[in-house]
Simulated assay, not measured.
Amino acid sequence: MTHRSELGKLAAAAGAVIVTLAGVVMVVTLVVAPAAPSIDGPVLTPGTRTVTPATGAPLLPPARPTGLEIPSIGLSIGRLVELSLTTNGSMEVPGEARSVG
Rank of each mutant, 00 (worst) to 15 (best):
P94W: 05
G67N: 08
A57D: 12
V19F: 12
T50Y: 07
G74Q: 06
L59C: 04
P62F: 12
S84A: 14
I39D: 03
V31A: 13
L21D: 04
V17K: 00
I39Q: 02
L83I: 04
L59F: 02
G56Y: 02
G15D: 12
V28F: 10
L7E: 10
T66R: 08
L75M: 14
T55C: 11
R79M: 08
L21I: 15
G41D: 00
L68R: 03
L21E: 09
L85T: 10
L10C: 07
A97D: 13
T55V: 07
V93E: 01
G23V: 09
T52C: 04
T87I: 09
T45L: 15
V24N: 03
L85H: 13
L59M: 09
L60V: 04
V28P: 01
V24W: 11
A97E: 10
P71N: 01
V43R: 09
P94F: 05
A36C: 03
T87Q: 09
E6F: 14
R49F: 11
T52A: 11
A14H: 07
P71E: 00
L44W: 11
S76Y: 06
A35P: 08
I77Q: 09
M91C: 08
T29S: 13
P94L: 07
V100K: 00
L68A: 05
E69D: 11
P37Y: 00
I73D: 01
E96V: 13
V27S: 06
V32R: 10
V31L: 15
L83A: 07
G23F: 00
G89S: 01
L10P: 05
G41T: 04
T50C: 04
A35Q: 10
V93W: 09
P37S: 07
P58L: 02
G78M: 02
S72A: 15
M91W: 12
G56M: 00
I70E: 01
T86P: 07
V19H: 05
V32N: 06
E6G: 11
L68Q: 06
P34A: 07
A14D: 09
L7S: 06
R98T: 15
L80V: 06
V31E: 03
G101W: 02
G47F: 00
G67K: 00
S38G: 12
S90I: 04
P53R: 00
A57H: 05
V93G: 02
A13Q: 11
G23P: 06
G8F: 08
L80N: 05
A13T: 06
G41W: 05
E92L: 05
A14C: 12
S99Y: 15
R64K: 15
S5A: 13
V100G: 02
I77P: 09
G15F: 03
G78D: 13
L68K: 03
G101P: 14
D40W: 04
G23M: 07
G56F: 07
P53W: 00
L83V: 14
I70S: 00
V17P: 02
E69N: 08
V24G: 05
L80R: 00
L80E: 06
V51N: 01
V28G: 00
S99A: 15
V24C: 10
L60E: 14
A54K: 04
P71S: 11
G23Y: 00
T52W: 03
V32E: 04
T45Y: 10
P37M: 03
P58Y: 02
P42K: 03
A14Y: 07
P46V: 01
V100A: 12
L60N: 12
E92Q: 15
V25W: 11
P34W: 01
R79W: 06
L21T: 08
I77H: 05
A57E: 12
V28I: 14
M1P: 13
A63R: 14
